[in-house]
Amino acid sequence: MSILDMQRAFGRMLTDKAFQRMFLDGDPAATEPYRLTEAELASLRGLDRGRLALQAELLANSRLELALGALPLTSLLLHHQLHDHVDRFCAEFPPVPESLGAMIVEAERLCEFAVRLLREGTLEPVWAEDVVAYERVLLDLSTSGEAWAGAATIALLNDGIAAPSAEDLPGLVPVTAANTRIVPFFHDLAELVPRLEDGEIPAGVTRLERPQLLLFVKRPGAVFVRRMRVNAATAALLEASDGRRTVAEVCAAVAGASGPGALSPPARQAALDMLLLLRDHGAIGLRPRMDDASTEYDGAAASDGRNG
């Protein structure tokens, strides 16, 4: 175990500056947790301080750059400010091993760190919190296996029913999966994001009176996540598309949520059109109703429905 303890201590010296100082200064609190031989201790204490500091600095900055590489808009807004806090980032988010790609792990950590600093007023502008949240959703949907599986499930369902007729549509069951997400934002990201993507940092961004809802959809095989602005009624349709209710029942549920009485014919038609549009975007799948409407949706059943 001795060499492993030496590697543990060395690794921590490279990733924890406070520990590095304590260890090299001979603080027993830093050395006692490790079972080191005299030769190992002498070797670690014999490390060139300047070179060790450089290697640790390179490592800290590479962690930050790796994360920012996955968050280009966050980087545009906060890159230099975050570099001023790289030591705090390393202290508060030590590089604990995780079974995920390093870029994703570090980007997730940096998102959390940036939000923490924005909320305490250490970073600005405050509206960058929305940008961080926006890129975090993009990162998650574009890299996660769950989003990929969800996209594949929706595609499979929609391949099974090519073009639902107006007669069939009310009886079909709309399904959502982990490839779709609606997120509220408190600044006009629909307007801000294209400007940020062009490298512009807008000034005087104000908070919206009501949240703006953006729909994010991961489609099978696509590199980029599709994004679109939606209204509350569309969000309600998606929320009601729980894989149990039919389209007709979803419309009724949305009507019930918005007040007494059924949807007016134009409103009902608008809801049906929107569900078809969401299907075209890969946000929902449509499947035939199973015998027991209360049955939980499962992929095998969907597959059977397609083949039947």
Partner: peptide, 24 residues
């Protein structure tokens, strides 16, 4: 080495050039 059980150093870190390291 690039990791220990507690730390993903994620940087190529030199080994101690000893017989014990060689065996590992």
């Amino acid at each position: 080495f690039t990791k220990t059980p507690e730390t993903n150093i994620d940087q190529l870190t030199p080994l101690w050039f000893t017989e014990e390291s060689l065996r590992i």
